[in-house]
Design a protein around this nucleic acid. Sequence first.
DNA 1: TGGCTACCTTTACACTGTACGGTAGCCCTT
DNA 2: AAGGGCTACCGTACAGTGTAAAGGTAGCCA
Lengths: 226, 226
Amino acid sequence: MTTDPGAPRPPRSGPLTKEAVLHTAVAMADRSGAGVPSMRNLAERLGVKAMALYHHFRNRPALLDGMVDRVFGEIEPPPEDAEWREAMRRRAVSMREALIRHPWAIGLMDSRTEPGRATLRHHNAVIGCLRSGGFSIAGAAHAVSVLDGYIYGFTLQELSLPFETPAELEDTADSIMRGLPGDEFPHLAEMVADHVMRPGYDYAEEFGVGLDLILDGLQRRRESWR
Amino acid sequence: MTTDPGAPRPPRSGPLTKEAVLHTAVAMADRSGAGVPSMRNLAERLGVKAMALYHHFRNRPALLDGMVDRVFGEIEPPPEDAEWREAMRRRAVSMREALIRHPWAIGLMDSRTEPGRATLRHHNAVIGCLRSGGFSIAGAAHAVSVLDGYIYGFTLQELSLPFETPAELEDTADSIMRGLPGDEFPHLAEMVADHVMRPGYDYAEEFGVGLDLILDGLQRRRESWR
DNA sequence: TGGCTACCTTTACACTGTACGGTAGCCCTT
DNA sequence: AAGGGCTACCGTACAGTGTAAAGGTAGCCA
């Protein structure tokens, strides 16, 4: 079965549009967990042959660019006049949520080339909020760099974990730990046993811990970053 | 040209080993910038047919796991009894360097499943250093989470930049800025003009800025993270 | 009427991972 | 010495990929 999930083909009205293609591509990537669909599968879902897509996108990377830009469009941008710290926190949370909603997106980051309009708009809003919160240009650049780095990196790690519920975590953790000499990696073993497998542990909570640490640091340095 | 770069095939002595395959795979991925080689290309370089590789690796993902583990093996682990802050700084720098030396590795992170021995050894050393530096188990978990998140995320962003030298940066930046209304993204435009394109700007320096911010935060919280 | 354009299809090519089955040489046991 | 099993490799084949090249068709404008 090559095109299992979902409706075989909705009869379209009128010609395809870039936006319609991107919408369907994102929807397909979100289900199926198998990442971005192939050109043929995407086309079939749209009731069209693969080569038709090349009339709307120069090539596959161009389509991926468009998909990533759509994800950026979903991130709640900070209002320009908002208090910077709270605004940055909300933006970080919103960004992580978007990346988790579209787990295929973060793996595409490292091959994207041209930022789309939603992406530019987003970055512009972030910088604007920091600037009006009292950050210098250099300071805002530093802030964006740490924050975005942390958000991407944390989420990348989170998505690469081979489990989703705490119960699965427990299974995975001791299936990894089993088969190890046990005293070869004592610190790791201790952390898994006493911390990770503690009932109620939820890795997602870690996000806020690191985020607040970074926001504190930004607040403390804001003045001195001239 | 399908197998352009490098020697056609070195005559091997004796049978292939896992390690030899991984060594060649990493070397090929490092050159060529085109990411991990295909099974056929890798096999050809080893003087062997593609299917021979499946006698040493269950499938392609297993080979990728091995490659990632080799990258972890290159990261300088912190000595257990070292002063934690300096040790963490060195480890972060070493990790970023390894990821930049092997730019294909970070894109593989989100699909890896079983951590290899070098990976486990590395994490064990990091946790051990933090623990003997006075971090509680929970504190060490927090520290690892922020630090690794930042390192991955920063490097991911850095690698996705479509330039390498400051000169290329300048070209890219204003080729993006050109064609925009200019007053649509004023804050972004300002930052590019006044900061990024300032002579001597080097994005790589940002790494240390964020890293020190995080290390400060960790130092400040170490005691209270019980 | 003729031509131009936008949109889509057909065909083809080079490439991918890998399932399945075979073969040549070695070692161990009877 | 004969047989059996094991390791290491090869050949073939299949279903899938992105996309270049070329062709078709419908609608619009001169």
